[in-house]
Nucleic acid binder design. Structure first.
Lengths: 119, 119
DNA sequence: TGAACATCTGAGCATCTATTCAGCTAACCT
DNA sequence: AGGTTAGCTGAATAGATGCTCAGATGTTCA
C-alpha cells in the first residue's frame, strides 16, 4: 500500500480518499455553467457582472457557482471598489480545462469518423 | 502565447454546446466510485466481478456505472465466455485520469503548505 | 435439461445539485 | 444622510444522481 510519502510516482491503485477528492474537484467541471465560467476566466480576469453577461446567467447564480469554485480553489476573487474581479487560481486550472476541452474534441472526432464510416 | 499549453488553436470562448459536452464527460470523473473504477482499469483490463471487489462495490452498482462510462466512450467491454472484460477506451482516458489525480495532489500540496504556515 | 455463475436492467429511494427569488451587506457618489 | 450599484447569501423547488433490490438474460458445465 502506498500511503505515506507520495512523491510523484503514481500509487498502483487510487485509494478511496484520493478518489473522493478527485471526484470532488472534477465536479467543478461537471456542470455546463461552471465550464463556461471557467472558460471565460481562462481568457482573462473579469467582474461578476461581466461574467454573468458573458455566460448568460443571472448574477446570483454566477455568485453561487463562484463560491463553489472558490472553495475548491479553482478561482480567486479580489475586491476593487464595489467590483470583485475573479480569475483562475493558477495555470494548473487552465491546463485542466484545456485538457478537458481537448479530450472532448478528441472524442468528437472519433464519433465523426464512426459516422462517416457507417454512412 | 501565454496560455496555449498544448499548441492546439481553440475558439476564444467555449460555446454552450462544447461546455455541455465537457460537463457531460467530466461528470464521469465526478463520482468517487467511477474514479475508483477508472483507476483500477488504468492498471489493466479486468472483469466486472474483479472490478467490483477491487473497488468495494456491489456488482450491480459497478454494472450501472460501467454502462455510463461505456456510453461516454471512456471504457470498452468485451465478452469472454461468461465474463465481460472491461478496459479503458484509449490512452487519452488514462491521460485525463492522470491529469485529474495530479491536479488534486497539486491542490493538496498547496493546502498542506497553508496548514503548516497557519499552525 | 437444469444448476451455477456472470452480467445486465428497471424500479424505487434517499440524497444531492443548480437555479430562482427575496433580502442582505458593502462601496461609491452626490 | 440617502440613493444607486455590485455582489453575497439562505431558503425553496424541480430535476438529476447513485445505490440497492429483485429479477431478467446469457454462458458454461455436469
Amino acid at each position: 500500500m502506498s500511503h505515506g510519502a507520495h512523491g510523484h510516482s503514481r500509487p498502483a491503485v487510487v485509494d478511496h480518499e484520493t478518489a473522493r477528492q478527485v471526484a470532488e474537484t472534477m465536479q467543478a467541471l461537471a456542470a455546463p455553467s461552471r465550464v463556461r465560467i471557467l472558460a471565460r476566466l481562462r481568457e482573462g480576469a473579469c467582474t461578476v457582472n461581466d461574467l454573468a453577461e458573458a455566460v448568460g446567467m443571472e448574477g446570483s447564480a454566477v455568485s453561487h457557482q463562484l463560491r463553489l469554485l472558490r472553495h475548491l480553489r479553482l478561482v480567486v476573487g479580489e475586491r476593487n471598489g464595489r467590483n470583485v474581479t475573479y480569475a483562475l487560481h493558477d495555470s494548473h486550472v487552465a491546463d485542466l480545462l484545456d485538457q478537458a476541452v481537448f479530450h472532448v474534441e478528441h472524442l468528437r472526432l472519433g464519433l465523426v469518423e464512426r459516422q462517416e464510416r457507417a454512412s
